[in-house]
């Protein structure tokens, strides 16, 4: 057999396989299994399902705390005074600065006021 390591499809060599299996025999599978399982018992690995059971309530609690904190923060935040009302904009229009007043305002105009004006 010609062995060429540049080839992409070099077949497995049965002679080498047999020789390696003979040279590297695997014996005592039951003993090995028993030994590994005994050591695994010593590890006290926490099963994933147990972690799951604790992770979900923990996530729910964290979300609830975050929500409460956000609501509390909203209540404590000082009321915005820089909302641009339409009336204010109309006053500004008299001075010729309506578009710039809307654009420069950090908050959008009061939607209810706009809707009321449209209805009128």
């Amino acid at each position: 057999m010609i062995l060429d390591f540049d080839s992409h499809d070099v077949p497995a060599d049965p002679k080498v396989k047999a020789a390696l299996e003979w040279l590297l025999p695997v014996t005592g599978p039951d003993e090995f299994r028993t030994r590994v399982l005994a050591r695994a018992l010593d590890l006290h690995v926490q099963p994933v399902s147990t972690l799951d059971r604790w992770a979900r309530p923990a996530l729910a609690a964290a979300a609830a705390i975050a929500l409460v904190a956000w609501l509390a923060g909203g209540l404590l935040e000082p009321a915005a005074t820089d909302t641009l009302t339409l009336d204010g904009a109309m006053v500004s229009s008299a001075t010729g600065s309506t578009p710039s007043a809307f654009i420069a305002s950090p908050r959008p105009p009061d939607a209810e006021a706009i809707a009321g004006l449209v209805v009128q």
């Binding site: 299994r33 399982l37 926490q46 099963p47 994933v48």
Partner: peptide, 11 residues
């Protein structure tokens, strides 16, 4: 999930 028999089967 901590099933020792299943782990033994993997071994």
């Amino acid at each position: 999930d901590g099933d020792r028999d299943a782990f033994g089967a993997l071994v």
